[in-house]
Computed example of a mutant assay.
Amino acid sequence: MREKLRVAAYAVCVRDGRLLMVRMPNPDGTSVWGLPGGGMEHGEDPYDTVLREVTEETGYRAEVTGLLGVDSVRFITRGRLGRTVDRHSVRLVYEGRVVGGELRDEVGGSTDLAAWQDLTAVSGLARIPLVDAALALWHERPAAGRAGLPEA
């Protein structure tokens, strides 16, 4: 079985009770909401990754105001040629603040819409599981950097 590791960085940007989100289209015509962010390029620091990705996907310039924690997920998929792939995603979740730029949609990327969503409406959106994990980190601010763990 082939193993594939992906390290990525994402931003939780909340302003006036709204969360900055991006919409990702699926091949079947449906879409899901996620957070601005994505995979690190070789040699890139995750801090730089999250800043780059926020700008690419939303048009905004952001600053990192804190590291909320790490989310890790592992799952089995079918790769090209039907081969089984053991995928492991490690996602660093930062808190960010918009400091400039203009909201716009990404062109030619993995997302097709950037928007502010009311925090109270996020649970009703079709969204990737990372959104809930990141919001748990944002709410809990766990010392160990991982939501849902008992306090020491």
Rank of each mutant, 00 (worst) to 15 (best):
H88E: 15
G109H: 11
T65S: 15
G108R: 10
I76L: 15
R104Q: 09
D45K: 00
D112A: 11
R104L: 06
E53L: 04
G66K: 14
G43C: 10
V22K: 03
D118T: 04
A114R: 09
G66E: 12
L92V: 07
R80M: 06
N26E: 08
V122G: 01
A114N: 08
G109F: 11
R61C: 14
R78Y: 13
V90R: 02
V98N: 04
L113H: 08
Q117T: 00
V64K: 11
T30S: 15
R74T: 14
E44K: 00
V90M: 09
W33T: 01
G96L: 05
I76R: 02
E95D: 14
Y94M: 03
E56F: 08
D48P: 03
T55G: 03
G108Q: 08
L119N: 03
R61I: 13
W33I: 07
E44A: 01
E95K: 13
P25I: 12
Y94D: 05
T84K: 15
G59M: 01
P27T: 09
G109T: 10
T49Y: 04
G69Q: 03
R52M: 12
S72H: 15
G101V: 10
A121F: 12
F75I: 04
W116P: 03
G96H: 02
R97S: 04
H42W: 12
V22I: 07
N26H: 15
R61Y: 14
Y60F: 15
V70E: 14
V107E: 01
R104K: 14
G43Y: 10
R78N: 06
D45C: 06
E44G: 05
G96N: 02
E44C: 05
G108C: 06
R23T: 06
E95P: 14
D28S: 14
P25R: 10
R52C: 12
T30Q: 13
T65I: 15
T58W: 04
G29N: 05
L92E: 02
M40H: 13
G69E: 05
A115F: 06
T84D: 13
V73Q: 09
S110G: 03
P46C: 02
L35C: 05
H88D: 14
S89T: 10
Y94R: 05
W33G: 01
G108W: 08
G79D: 07
V73F: 03
P46H: 02
D112T: 12
L35S: 01
V107R: 15
G109I: 11
Y60G: 02
G38L: 04
G100L: 05
R97K: 06
G29P: 09
P27V: 09
S110L: 06
L35I: 00
T49S: 01
G37W: 05
V98E: 00
I76C: 09
G38N: 08
L68R: 11
R23V: 03
G59T: 04
E106V: 11
E57M: 06
M40Y: 11
D48Q: 02
V73T: 05
G39S: 08
E63S: 13
G29K: 08
W33Q: 10
T49E: 04
S72L: 14
S72C: 13
Y94A: 00
G82K: 11
E53R: 01
G82Q: 12
E95T: 13
T84Y: 13
V54A: 00
P27D: 09
T77Y: 13
S31R: 10
V73P: 04
V85C: 04
L119A: 08
M24F: 09
G79N: 07
E102V: 15
D118R: 03
G101L: 07
E95H: 15
D86Y: 09
G43M: 10
